[in-house]
């Protein structure tokens, strides 16, 4: 088990992360670190590699048991993810491990289709919705150097987090 420090938004690398060429041992170790760090962080349902200081296109997500989850693919680690299509934009509140003190209202697609490479090195396509779709879009944004702070709906969309965990 390897827990990594999550970098804050003022430290995070804003340049687009690099694509992974093949799923080697380093990628598997990265996947383990992402999952371990995600599970060790209360309330965390997703973590992107740039958040632990690794400039690669990889993230982990698991929205199992969350009250807003509908379609759920359980634990996943994806490399080189791309959004294929999205529909039905909706506004909802979200937070981020790299911005622990704030939350924001952000518009995301309610229905989402993405493609990526799994831990076996195989291409997978996922169709999902609701909270899992939001989490995936949030993590893919990290790979492009974007935080939810870049997608706020306006000044009234920025909020102090009520419960500091």
């Amino acid at each position: 088990m390897s827990l990594r420090r999550v970098v804050t938004h003022s430290e995070i690398d804003r340049s687009p992360a690099l694509a992974v060429e093949s799923i080697d041992d380093d990628c598997l170790a990265l996947a383990r670190d992402l999952l371990d760090t995600m599970y060790a962080s209360p309330g965390c349902v997703g973590l992107a590699a740039p958040q632990i200081g690794v400039p690669l296109r990889a993230f982990s997500v698991n929205v199992t048991g969350h009250k807003k989850t509908q379609i759920c693919h359980g634990e996943m680690v994806l490399f080189n993810p791309k959004v294929l299509s999205g529909s039905d934009p909706v506004m909802a509140r979200e937070g981020c491990m790299s911005v622990p003190e704030l939350t924001g209202d952000v518009v995301r697609f309610e229905n989402l289709s993405i493609v990526g490479i799994d831990l076996k090195g195989e291409e997978v396509m996922l169709e999902t919705n609701a909270f899992e779709a939001r989490a995936l879009q949030h993590e893919i944004d990290h790979l492009d150097g974007l935080l939810f702070l870049d997608r706020l709906a306006g000044p009234g969309a920025l909020h102090a987090r009520k419960v500091y965990k």
């Binding site: 804050t8 003022s10 003190e101 009234g156």
Partner: peptide, 13 residues
């Protein structure tokens, strides 16, 4: 306009 200063991080929207 809204701003937030949290520790040493600043957000302006």
């Amino acid at each position: 306009l809204a701003t937030r200063l949290i520790d040493s991080s600043y957000v302006l929207v």
